[in-house]
């Protein structure tokens, strides 16, 4: 996020850092959470924000579309106001609040759109090379070559390996999932606009992805897969009269995608928290004297560099792990289909 800018400012102007009174809660959750506007940076005490459209549907007054700038400071607009959790609620005449249907283009949605656009551009540009060249006669170089290497690594080492014979049907989804997660993870590490939105560290995002894997596993699962769940090869007393193992298996159907969801979410969120915490040290020690502040600033910058590099690794690993486990789950649902 703005931490790199913050680091520079803090190093060059410790006085500026003194002037900041850091509210840790707002700082951390403001950065990893979602919001109606995108706070890009603050210049001379004036926040520089991108105002995003708020789209809400009230049960009583219907659709409302307005800019987030009207509600950012906590004022009410068209009967809507932010509550303590930062969510938009509708004020009722009797003083109570109601939750409207809220499909606003929030910070995460905008980040998602930008990242998706980047992803689509990258992949389509790569695909364009293959349309324009005879790939049987020459191999791509440069960026296309890198993309080919990544794509074929996922395709050959993960998808083909884990799913087996009919991997072709799943390969577009798994490749999309891999690059979607990878691009969003990387963009999350970029500290300035349009990066920095904590997208893959948001549970709604990972939930959708896990749901896709759940559908891919269960909708296309073969007979053997369902037999293994409902009538597994275990002693009969484990199935009748109390269907112990089937119950466990059915729970397993849901825990697998659930673990996918939580793993990605928690890893990315934790990475963001770590980075933010490391940077926060600079601001928190600002009041403790210039010596301590300077010393800890140096340490936190060094540690921040280390964390950033680690996060780059995590960005790749989590995308890889999600794809691999999805492939494994899909592969399990396709077992014995050929025998």
């Amino acid at each position: 996020m703005k931490r790199l800018v913050g680091i520079l400012v803090a190093l060059l102007l410790p006085v500026f850092a003194w002037a900041q009174d850091l509210d840790m809660d707002e700082y951390l959750f403001g950065h990893v959470g979602d919001s109606y506007g995108w706070h890009v940076t603050t210049i001379k005490g004036e926040p520089v924000s991108i105002h995003l459209p708020v789209i809400v549907r009230s049960k009583t007054t219907g659709w409302h579309v307005f800019s987030s700038k009207y509600i950012e400071e906590g004022e009410s607009y068209e009967g809507f106001v932010l509550n303590e959790g930062g969510k938009l609620v509708e004020l009722q005449p009797d003083g109570t609040t109601l939750k409207p249907l809220d499909i606003s283009i929030t910070k995460n949605v905008l980040g998602l759109m930008v990242n998706s656009l980047i992803l689509v551009l990258i992949v389509l540009l790569t695909a364009r090379w293959y349309r324009k060249h005879d790939a049987t006669k020459q191999a791509p170089r440069g960026f296309t070559g890198l993309m080919e290497m990544l794509i074929m690594m996922v395709e050959d080492d993960v998808i083909k390996e884990c799913i087996g014979a009919d991997y072709r049907r799943y390969s577009p989804y798994l490749l999309t999932a891999f690059f979607f997660i990878f691009v969003n993870n990387l963009m999350g590490i970029v500290p300035f606009f349009p990066g920095g939105a904590n997208i893959t560290g948001n549970i709604a995002i990972t939930m959708t992805l896990a749901l896709c894997t759940f559908i891919a596993v269960n909708v296309f699962g073969n007979k053997h897969y369902w037999k293994d769940i409902l009538w597994p090869d275990v002693p009969t007393w484990l199935k009748v009269p109390l269907p112990l193992i089937p119950v466990i298996e059915i729970i397993g159907m849901f825990t697998k995608p659930f673990s996918l969801m939580v793993r990605l979410f928690a890893n990315i969120l934790a990475g963001h928290f770590m980075l933010l915490g490391v940077v926060a040290v600079i601001f928190l020690t600002a009041k403790m004297g210039i010596g301590l502040n300077a010393g800890l600033s140096v340490i936190s910058v060094l540690f921040g560099v280390f964390m950033d590099i680690l996060e780059l690794l995590v960005a790749f690993i989590q995308a890889y792990v999600f794809t691999m486990l999805s492939s494994v789950f899909i592969g399990l649902s396709r077992q014995h289909s050929n025998s």
């Binding site: 998602l112 695909a127 577009p172 999309t176 709604a204």
Partner: peptide, 25 residues
């Protein structure tokens, strides 16, 4: 999970998946 984000994510991911599965990978 926030409903708005779920909604947009589903929409965006579906579109991205459609484009990439059709013209990309």
């Amino acid at each position: 999970p926030d409903f708005g984000l779920l909604f947009w994510m589903t929409l965006i991911f579906a579109v991205v998946f459609f484009i990439l599965a059709k013209f990309g990978f």
